[in-house]
């Protein structure tokens, strides 16, 4: 079957696809948990700050990941 499949490219696509498609998606979800902690009324002020920090970090990584994807695509 190897003559029909570029195994080398395939596993790279698998890893990158999982990193972006699962990793970044999950990080975005974590960021939303952070945002929710910030807006929940009964949360303490410490929890709010931590939530905001978590959200900022997560969303930054997600945006950076997306930008990297576009950059890689444009470089071709």
């Amino acid at each position: 079957m190897n003559q029909y499949v570029d195994v080398d490219a395939l596993w790279k696509v698998l890893v990158a696809g999982l990193a972006g498609g699962v990793g970044l998606v999950a990080l975005f979800a974590v960021g939303m948990v952070g945002l929710a902690a910030r807006t929940t009324a009964h949360a303490g002020s410490q929890a709010r700050v931590a939530g905001l920090a978590l959200a900022v970090v997560c969303f930054t990584i997600v945006v950076a990941g997306a930008a990297l994807g576009l950059y890689v695509m444009l470089k071709k």
Partner: peptide, 23 residues
């Protein structure tokens, strides 16, 4: 919407990765 986000996220990642690695 969470499903839609996961689906499009998966599509975007796979398409970009595939086009980068020439698959």
């Amino acid at each position: 919407s969470p499903q839609g986000f996961a689906a499009e996220g998966s599509s975007a990642a796979v398409i970009l990765a595939a086009s980068h690695f020439g698959f």
